[in-house]
Design a protein around this nucleic acid. Sequence first.
DNA 1: GCGCCTAATTGGTTGGACCATTGTGCCAAT
DNA 2: ATTGGCACAATGGTCCAACCAATTAGGCGC
Lengths: 244, 244
Amino acid sequence: MINPILSPVHTSSRDDAVLNALVDFVASEGLKPGDRLPTERVLSEYLKVSRTTVREALTRWQELGLVERRQGSGTYLRAAVTRNMLHMPLTLPSGNDFGSLMHTLEIRRGLEAEAAVLCAERASDEDIAFIEQKLIRMEAAFHEREGMSSEEDWDFHLAVFRTSGNPLFEQIIAAMYEMFHRFWEHPLGVRDFGHASFPYHRTLFNCIAARDPVGARAEALKLIATVEDDLRRGAANLKKQSKT
Amino acid sequence: MINPILSPVHTSSRDDAVLNALVDFVASEGLKPGDRLPTERVLSEYLKVSRTTVREALTRWQELGLVERRQGSGTYLRAAVTRNMLHMPLTLPSGNDFGSLMHTLEIRRGLEAEAAVLCAERASDEDIAFIEQKLIRMEAAFHEREGMSSEEDWDFHLAVFRTSGNPLFEQIIAAMYEMFHRFWEHPLGVRDFGHASFPYHRTLFNCIAARDPVGARAEALKLIATVEDDLRRGAANLKKQSKT
DNA sequence: GCGCCTAATTGGTTGGACCATTGTGCCAAT
DNA sequence: ATTGGCACAATGGTCCAACCAATTAGGCGC
């Protein structure tokens, strides 16, 4: 019954009218992320609505991360906007406990496995060469710094997601990834966090290169499993520390 | 009362202060989703901020789907709220072409299978009884109206997702579900849309009741497969029609 | 008891005012 | 000529008081 998304189209709402007009404006002016929007007062006058209404509309975009406001400076675009965007506000209660972090991994488990399957099914030769390049770069960074490199690691996975041909994978998993790392920059004092996942990157790639969807799923699952394991170890670590 | 803990971050924003106070109020009153919040004017007076500020704060919660406003009636809680909630709003460009629709199904394939697994692993006896009740209701609606009922069908799946213990499943899948149905209330002229998925609801339930995660995954995948098939038939239908 | 109508309540909108922060450009001191 | 500080204008943030629009509750007549 409580559907977090469904919001009967309030076409009569002034806010939506303002936002739609703003989408058109952004499109007609060719504004890109980082560019400044007109001031609230200007929008208010131009759209023939009160400044309060403009503010309410901008507040909504701000909450969705589409826009950033800087007092004294202006309002700046942060992402591409289009009409009929689908907004998907994900909410986790109390985001920094063990359970919530595990929840993000459960989502990744389902999605990364599926993405690996699709990637293995659809990858062209060029795609595979590109992914291999990312893999080699990741491995090099691993040996250089003697540990996982978040950036190169992410680039590799990103290449896999994009090859799946479905942009939703990248966006949703990226959100999970950010949720996970927001509180665990140095997760729970586990020094070699992510270390165990290293070998599975290559085995995953091998399955993709061999167009083996079943194997790719298996390797992706193993990879996630190591992360889950790290998280469990970290949680145990924390428990032990709090006892002393 | 406000937590005696030293306020970690002196909230620079009035909005956040209002929302934090509101979280405490909801907690102290034991309000649940569906309950009514105090009116904006009351909050304004009690919190010693202007009604404008209260409105801006509530607008943010509304955009996150935490709260619903009804003019002339009041503001109602839609989800549990806590301090330190983690918000991750995603905005997806929603297309209404065949490819985009299929993309939502690929996401659902990965997530519904995973949710079914977790549900089968974690369901208590009460959970199973509740899910069965939803199943029976869905089957009754099916036979009554001789076709799938979106509402009862969704209720059944919802029960499964919630039993998984991970709120993200419901949120993400609901977004996919809405994206799918936004343009295809009567998808592509396929009259018996969803018809083929009917039997798999019970087989899925049986696996869950038997605590068989592997079987549950298989049945969930079959269920999604029928929807994908319907979509393909619809697309073919449309193609044929446009030719004439 | 039933149905309609009125009045109070509540969110939505408006206009105007002022505050806090930021950016800019001028001006003086070096 | 460069640099530093200062005044001022622009911009988002907050406030107030009133009115609009939808909803709800209560009372009135039947």
